[in-house]
Amino acid sequence: MTPTNTVTDLSKGKPSEPPIEILNNETARIYTHIHPVLVLSLYALRFKAIVADPVPALTNTLIPLGVMQIAFAAICLPPTGSEAVVAEKRKPGEKKKPGQGKVASAVNGKVIPAFLSLAISTLAATPILMLTLILFGAPISTHHWHTLLAAAHISLLAVVPLIYVHGVDGEKWREIVACLLPIDEVYGCLIGSVLGAWLGAVPIPLDWDREWQKWPVTIVTGAYIGFAVGKLVGGTLLKGKKIKFE
């Protein structure tokens, strides 16, 4: 594993927390690999319907996608503020929660944050992403629902896991936007989805006259593919690297 052009070892940057690790149990380790397959299958399954009539199809797809993302977060990821649990060896004892019943702990500690992340990303991230899409050239006077739904999909793919693990701390999000965090599976999802959505605009002007070239199918497709690639690469090849700009 050699550092690539834009990525360098952690040691070079300023001290920062380590990358997010998948929870240390069998289910998490297995599901984290199944999850992207499930998400891509869902999209593949819905693709025809989305091409045929994007607005209702994308709306319907949001629900299973949301469920999957909640499941992914709850099963595989450490919730925000629980780094201690993950990196117990490094920061022993910090913020450790008092013992509770196993089920109650799972609900309080995992499912609720997961639902919260879903709500926040839908309410906060989607409008911001929609504005970003418009700044990047999305139609401004028409197709509002299309653009909004595209933004919602990107935010479910990219933002839900991030909010789950990092919360809504401003400083943290500053670092996320400025690409200062070390790459991990969750951050890889964000970078992958966003780059994928951006690259998804390339086929639109081609004169292939295919139905799927219409707005916003390619963007959403790019985001899904980018999500899977980013998650895979972020979790393996580039894990722990920091993005270097100079």
């Binding site: 700044l135 990047f136 050239g137 951006w198 605009a201 390339v202 639109i204 002007p205």
Partner: peptide, 10 residues
């Protein structure tokens, strides 16, 4: 033009 608009946004 789409190429230039697109890459410049990026």
């Amino acid at each position: 033009h789409h190429f230039w608009y697109w890459i410049t946004s990026g």
